[in-house]
Write a protein that binds this DNA or RNA. Structure first.
Lengths: 182, 182
DNA sequence: ACTGTAGGCCAACACGTGTTGACAATCAAC
DNA sequence: GTTGATTGTCAACACGTGTTGGCCTACAGT
């Protein structure tokens, strides 16, 4: 009995998040995750049951859009961009989702839930127009996922080289438009 | 001698493109590709040498931006969007690249080559400003890859449900801005 | 000191993978 | 009709995977 079960469980979880974020679902093997956590592969099974369930636990997260509740209308675009960029950098969760959502159907479904279920209602509340909220949410998601893809996954040099402020000045007006256009 | 070698080679290639586009690099197995092509797995090896080389052959393609050579300045944004959307739907090549570029380093590199090497020079020529072309190209790539991701891979319902014209009216001004902003 | 319980490790399983080599079938050239 | 080359098939290889069960090992309660 070296540790409590909750401790090792969380050690495994964070190792899993890193591996999934770096390698995607298929290439992140249970053995490599276990090695990172300095633990036996069988432990991963004991605590999470299967690779799918491990992944489900690792991909759980909250975009925390509530932080944007009282931003003035005209600054919403810039605020959204800044918020997204920080979410990308805060933890591996978004990278996990993007890397895996592309080959793993479960992850794609979760992505849809998150962006439709967390972003759209927020936009409906902010703009007061529930009818157009899903489309606006989808356009904003597409733009911000595209930037995440270019910056963190594909690593296009110009995008990697830009500062947060530069990105905000490029993307802010775009998001603002997706929020408010006709 | 049932067929000529060039024939079977091209049969394998198109089966490979479909599988890579649908499943990504890791999950598209040589056996499944061979099964689709109704051919022995060993043939794939004989003709392409390895899975990596098969992939390299399948991911080869040209974005054909030359088609945009004589579009009036003010319509460039809309024209770009329409061109990209048609490229997405024309063949599986772009989907192959996106699906695989996320887990396969070679594919990511190829993606960088294509977008920096084919798009940026075109933009430099169109705008007459070589210095800012790489950044503009990267921003446009990010937006268009994001839309492709949302529409063809993650299948966000609002994006899937939009017509080409609707997409152009949302995205056209964005691209126009990335082309011409200060 | 003894026992029960819970964390941790090891070895093995069944399976699917990319890849290889030897062998059969089919055609062209002479 | 025989030879030579080219297309196709079969079976097997070495390896890495997710997953399983049995076996230690350390602590808590009595």
């Amino acid at each position: 009995m070296r540790r409590t079960s909750a401790e090792t469980k969380s050690i495994i979880l964070s190792a899993a998040r890193e591996r999934f974020a770096a390698d995607g679902y298929e290439r992140a093997t249970i053995r490599s995750i276990a090695a990172d956590a300095k633990i036996d592969p069988a432990m991963v099974m004991r605590y999470f049951g299967s690779k799918e369930k491990l992944f489900a636990a690792a991909a759980e997260f909250d975009l925390r859009f509530d932080a944007l509740a009282d931003v003035p209308r005209e600054q919403l675009g810039a605020a959204f961009v800044r918020h997204f960029l920080r979410q990308w950098e805060a933890g591996e969760a978004l990278q996990v989702l993007l890397r895996t959502g592309i080959t793993n159907d479960g992850a794609a479904e979760r992505m849809r839930e998150i962006f439709a279920g967390q972003l759209a209602p927020r936009i409906a509340a902010l703009t007061g127009d529930p009818a157009s909220a899903p489309v606006r949410a989808a356009m904003i998601s597409a733009q911000m996922l595209g930037i995440g893809l270019a910056r963190y996954i594909l690593q296009f040099p110009p995008v990697v080289g830009m500062s947060e402020d530069e990105l905000v000045s490029w993307l802010g007006p775009t998001i603002q438009r997706y929020l408010t256009a006709d």
